[in-house]
């Protein structure tokens, strides 16, 4: 078991958590959303977290009708080949974000996750995969290495 995994297990255990820094402080530094500053003046270490503006903010589409979800409001017919849109709804390991984070309606969340699966299977988002996975879709096994496409009308919503 790796050291990181041990750390997370340690964190989960409620009895050992006292006096341990919170999880958000740990992970956010890498992502630059919340920057952690460590200032060492003689005998005192001051750790402070500062929220940075999101990289997406300047390019964010304005939701014309805030009653409905962003995808419904955009009125786009999103295909599984629109990887620049679909990659907004996934983590860096290609995993679909939950609905409380994407803020989509039930129908669109289900549709988007189906489209993300299709894009992954077609090998269109090879850089959004778990770090230990084989990134090149041409090196997959058997039938998986060949090009395939999907019909979006098969998605049941």
């Amino acid at each position: 078991m790796s050291f990181l995994k041990l750390l997370t297990l340690w964190e989960r255990c409620p009895t050992t958590k006292i006096g341990y820094p919170t999880r958000s402080l740990y992970l956010s530094s890498k992502l630059q959303l919340k920057q952690i500053e460590e200032v060492i003046t003689d005998n005192t270490v001051t750790i402070s977290a500062k929220i940075l503006p999101s990289e997406r903010e300047p390019h964010l589409l304005k939701n014309a009708n805030p009653v409905v979800c962003p995808v419904c409001a955009s009125g786009l017919d999103i295909k599984h080949t629109d990887v620049l849109i679909l990659s907004q709804f996934v983590r860096s390991d290609g995993c679909m974000l939950p609905r409380r984070i994407t803020g989509l309606c039930r129908k669109q969340q289900k549709r988007m996750s189906a489209l993300v699966t299709m894009a992954h299977k077609a090998g269109l988002m090879p850089n959004l995969n778990p770090p230990n996975s084989n990134k090149d879709p041409k090196k997959r096994h058997h039938w998986k290495k060949f090009n395939k496409y999907f019909d979006e009308s098969t998605i049941k919503t």
């Binding site: 999880r23 958000s24 992970l27 956010s28 992502l31 959303l33 929220i51 999101s54 990289e55 997406r56 903010e57 390019h59 964010l60 589409l61 962003p70 995808v71 955009s74 620049l84 849109i85 990659s87 907004q88 709804f89 983590r91 860096s92 390991d93 409380r100 984070i101 994407t102 803020g103 989509l104």
Partner: peptide
């Protein structure tokens, strides 16, 4: 550059831990 500047439909919540 293209990926960064493509119009974004959603933004992360303020307390989201990016992964």
């Amino acid at each position: 550059q293209e990926r960064k500047e493509f119009p974004k439909l959603i933004d992360y919540p303020k307390d989201y831990i990016l992964r």
